[in-house]
């Protein structure tokens, strides 16, 4: 474990807590894409298949349970909690996210480190996580301005992968033959997808005005 990875995990944890806080306290999921949340449930479900078979550390297992639990409960809230479900704008959140999964599963079947069920599922979850934010970013473009909590959620979610990139660089230089191109490239793509959001988020923070995304 290194400081970059810990910072990444804490930033990731903060992002899901901010979203849960928003949904649980003000009972609203306005501006949040259910499609992205559903994709994250699939990302964690396929990423942590080995949660009961391979034990790395208490920390590792605890964080996996937190990410699985939080992503499932966010989807549950948005789908089945009456008050929250009412604030979900279904008309705008229309990204065909199942079409995102198909290329990811095909790519995972083609490009992976080992052709085993676990490895292909794990690789699929990496590719899917890289694009999982797209429905959310599309929704933001449509609804234009976003509330602070949703903005913070996306900012933290994008930031965590940025910390992971620093972690990969650190591990590359400190651990012999630590080379994982698949992880590095999908992580880089994921972070780049947030780039324009980061730009407008920073602008709104600098000018201290509400976050407005261009049409």
């Amino acid at each position: 474990m290194n400081i970059f990875r810990l910072a990444g995990d804490m930033t990731h944890l903060a992002s899901v807590l901010v979203l849960l806080l928003k949904i649980h306290t003000i009972k609203s999921c306005a501006g949040v894409s259910l499609k992205t949340q559903e994709l994250y449930v699939i990302v964690f479900a396929t990423r942590y298949l080995d949660i009961f078979t391979s034990f790395v550390s208490i920390y590792n297992s605890l964080m996996k349970l937190i990410f699985l639990g939080s992503s499932f409960s966010i989807v549950w809230y948005m789908r089945y909690h009456k008050a929250v479900h009412r604030t979900y704008d279904r008309e705008q959140d229309t990204f065909r996210h199942w079409f995102l999964m198909l290329p990811c599963i095909l790519l995972a079947l083609l490009i992976h480190e080992k052709f085993t069920f676990f490895e292909v599922m794990w690789t699929f979850s990496l590719y899917l996580e890289a694009v999982a934010i797209l429905p959310q970013l599309v929704l933001l473009q449509r609804t234009r301005n976003i509330d602070n909590l949703t903005g913070q959620y996306i900012f933290l979610l994008g930031g965590y992968r940025g910390f992971y990139i620093l972690n990969w660089i650190y591990r590359y230089f400190t651990e012999p033959h630590y080379v994982h191109w698949i992880t590095w490239i999908s992580g880089l793509v994921q972070t780049l997808l947030y780039a324009d959001f980061f730009y407008y988020y920073f602008l709104s923070w600098k000018n201290n005005k509400k976050l407005q995304l261009p049409a």
């Binding site: 590792n60 012999p176 033959h177 630590y178």
Partner: peptide, 10 residues
């Protein structure tokens, strides 16, 4: 963590 695995990451 041994270098050649990254399954220790979340």
């Amino acid at each position: 963590e041994d270098g050649d695995s990254n399954k220790d990451e979340l």
